[in-house]
Design a protein around this nucleic acid. Sequence first.
DNA 1: CTGAAAGCGCTAACAC
DNA 2: GTGTTAGCGCTTTCAG
Lengths: 391, 391
Amino acid sequence: MTTSQGRRKPIVPVRAVEKRGSDGQTDGKLGGAGLDGTARTRTQRPKRSPTMQDIADAAGVSQSTVSRILTGSHVAIPINPATRERVLEAARRMRYRPNPLARGLRGSRTMLLGVIVREITDPFFAGAVDAISGEASKRGYNVVLGHAHGNTTEAIALRAVLETRHCDAIILVGDTSDQPLLLKDLHETNVTVVGAWQGSSSLGGVTTVNVDNRAGVCALMDHLLDLGHTRIAFIGGRFAAGSPLGDIQQRLLAFSGRLTERGVQIPESYVVEAQNNLGSGADAFEALMRLPEPPTAVVASTDVLALGALHGACRMNLSVPGAVSIAGFDDLPEAEYSNPPLTTVRQPIAEMAAVAVRAAIDESDHETQPIVEMLSPKLIIRSSTGPVPAR
Amino acid sequence: MTTSQGRRKPIVPVRAVEKRGSDGQTDGKLGGAGLDGTARTRTQRPKRSPTMQDIADAAGVSQSTVSRILTGSHVAIPINPATRERVLEAARRMRYRPNPLARGLRGSRTMLLGVIVREITDPFFAGAVDAISGEASKRGYNVVLGHAHGNTTEAIALRAVLETRHCDAIILVGDTSDQPLLLKDLHETNVTVVGAWQGSSSLGGVTTVNVDNRAGVCALMDHLLDLGHTRIAFIGGRFAAGSPLGDIQQRLLAFSGRLTERGVQIPESYVVEAQNNLGSGADAFEALMRLPEPPTAVVASTDVLALGALHGACRMNLSVPGAVSIAGFDDLPEAEYSNPPLTTVRQPIAEMAAVAVRAAIDESDHETQPIVEMLSPKLIIRSSTGPVPAR
DNA sequence: CTGAAAGCGCTAACAC
DNA sequence: GTGTTAGCGCTTTCAG
C-alpha cells in the first residue's frame, strides 16, 4: 500500500476556514464519504475537536492571544478583560480542550507520570499505585501505568518504556532487576527516573525510596524470639530468575542475620521459596509443617504469603497461634481481617508514595541531586503470633 | 532560510546543522550547555534524544527517508537496501526513539488505550485492569490508567479525561454514573469510548461489554433455594450517591426478582448496604445475623463483601455453611483460598477484557456500529454453601 | 527510490 | 495589549 491511506478513518475537513489550504487536496485523496458532514451524520466520530485557531477565529483575535488567555498566564501577561471574556466565552461555547500532545511536543510538561509496576494484581502494588496516583493527582499529574506484567518478556516492558517517553518522569515500582534491559533503557532515555520499593537492587545514580526492610524484619524477629521461638521458618516470595527480588532478598538477609546475631540456628529446610500468591503460600506453609521438626513460627516475606499460610493452617487444622505463629510483611488491608488477624510489618506506603512523587516531579522540573530515601516500617502485633506452644 | 538569522537569539554554534536554529533557546531552558555532551558531562539530563533529523544527518539522507524507513512501512515502500541499512545503523547507534507526541500530533495513532477505573485497590478491578492491559499489550497498545479515585470529586476524574485525550480510545471500567460529568465529557470529546462492567447504567450509543448479572445471580439463587434456603439475605456493595452502582443494582434486582419468581418472601431488613470492603462486609454480616430471625444464607454482591462476611462468621463463631451459607460474586483469586472456600459466580474477565480491547481498537480505527455484548458468568460451587441448618 | 515542503496544535520570542 | 512568526518531531503528499 504505497499510500497507506487504506487503514485510517477519513479525516473530514468540516470547517470552511480558508487558512487551511490543504483541504482541497486532502479531500480528493482521503475523502470518499461524508466530506462535510452532510452525507453522513450517523455518528459524530469525524468531529474534530476545536483548536485554538478555531477559537481565535470565532472570537476575532489571533491564535496566540487565545493561547495566552487559555494557557493560564493569568496574571503574568496583561490582557484586555473584554478580549479575555470574549475568548473564554468562545472556548466554553465550542468546548475547547487543549491538546496535550501539541503542548508536550512544544516542550512544556505533559503532566504525566509514568508508573511501571510488575504486577498490578498484587494487592500491595495495587495499594502503592493507588497511593502514587492519589499523590500525583493532588499535584495535577496523571499517571500512565506501564505494566511490566510479571511473566512477560522484556520486550514488552521495553516497548512500554519507549512509548512512555512522553511522561515528565517515570516511577519504577518494585524490583525490576530481572528485566535489566528495562532499566538500561530507562537510563538511556532522558526522562527522570525514580525508583520505589527497589529493595536490594540498586538503581545507580537514581533517586530511590525504599522501606527499611532490615529494621522491619528485625523488629519482627525480636518479637518472635522474645516470645520464645527458636524454630522459625521463612517463606520467601516474588522470586524471579532463580533469585529473590530486591525487597524479599533484603528481608531474607535480615531474617538470617538477626537469627545469627541472637545466636539462634535453624536448619536450611526452614527457608522456602514460593510464588507470591495465596495458594503458593499455603503450600509452602504445609510443606514446612510437615517437616520432621516443624517450626513453631513462620515468617512470610509478604502478607499475601502469610495469608496463604493462614489458610494452610486452617486446612491442616492447626490453630494459630496455638500450634504455630505466623507473621507477614506489608500490612495489607486484608491483614486486619484475616482469621486470626495477622501480625505484620506496616509499610509507610502513603509517605513513600509522596516522597517518590515529589522527587519525580521536582527532578523532572530541574536538575537535582539524586537522593536515596529509606522510610521506617512499623511492627503491628495482632493475634497471629503468640508464645511457643508447650511441647 | 532568510529569516533565521534575523533573530538575535544566542545561537550556540555547536553543530553544523543549520536547520535547527532553536537549539539556542532550548538550552537556555534546559541547563546552559551540553548540547552535544561536550561542555558538561555531569548529568545526562540536558541530553536531547536524537530526532529523525539527527539520524538523517548522520546517515546522509533526508529526514523523510528516515521516517519512511523507521516508520515501519517495511515492505510497502521500496527503499534501497543500502540506504535502509545505513539509516537503521545510525538509528541504532544513536539510540533513536520515536517521539510519540509528535507522532500523535501528526494524526496517526498513539497506541495508547485509556482505562478509567473507579478503584484500583478493588481486587476485582485490579484484575480487570490486568486483563485489559495484558490484552492491550498483545496488540501493541499501552494503557493509561485514569483513576476515578472513588471518593474524589468529579473534577479530578474530569481532568483525567481531558488529559487523556491523546489516547486512541478509552475504556471505562465499572459504573461511573455517579460522575455524570465524566461521561458527558467523554462524549463531547471525539475519542472512542467503550464501557465495561457498566451494569445497569447505560452508556447510550456506546459500545459496552457487561457480564450477565441477572443470569449469575439467578443461578446462585436457584442453588441456594434448591438447598432449601428461604431466609436469604443480600449485602449490596459499591454504593455511591445513595444508590447502588450499575452491576450491584442489577444483582440486587435479580436477587429480589428470582425470590419473587420462586414465591419466596423475605423481610426488608434482609437487604443491607455496605461499602465494598472487608470490614464493611463483616459488619453487615454481623448485623444480619443479629436480627431476631437471622437468615440462613447470605448473598454478597461481591466477593470482597463475601470474604468480609466469612470473617464476620469467624468472629461470631458461626460455622459456615453449618450455621449459615455465604456466597459471593466475581470469583476473585482469594475466593478459592478462603476458609471455607467460597461459593461464587465467576466472571469471564479475560473474555470481557478481550472484547472490550478489541472493540476499542477497532472502533478507534474505523467507523463502527456500537455493540452491546453481554457475557455469561458461571456458578462456582465451593463449600461455603450447604443445606439449611436443622433448626 | 528519494528529497522538499507542508503542516498537526500549541508556546514563546519578538515586534508593533 | 495583541499580532506575527518560528518551530517542537513527525507523517505524508508531491515532485522529481
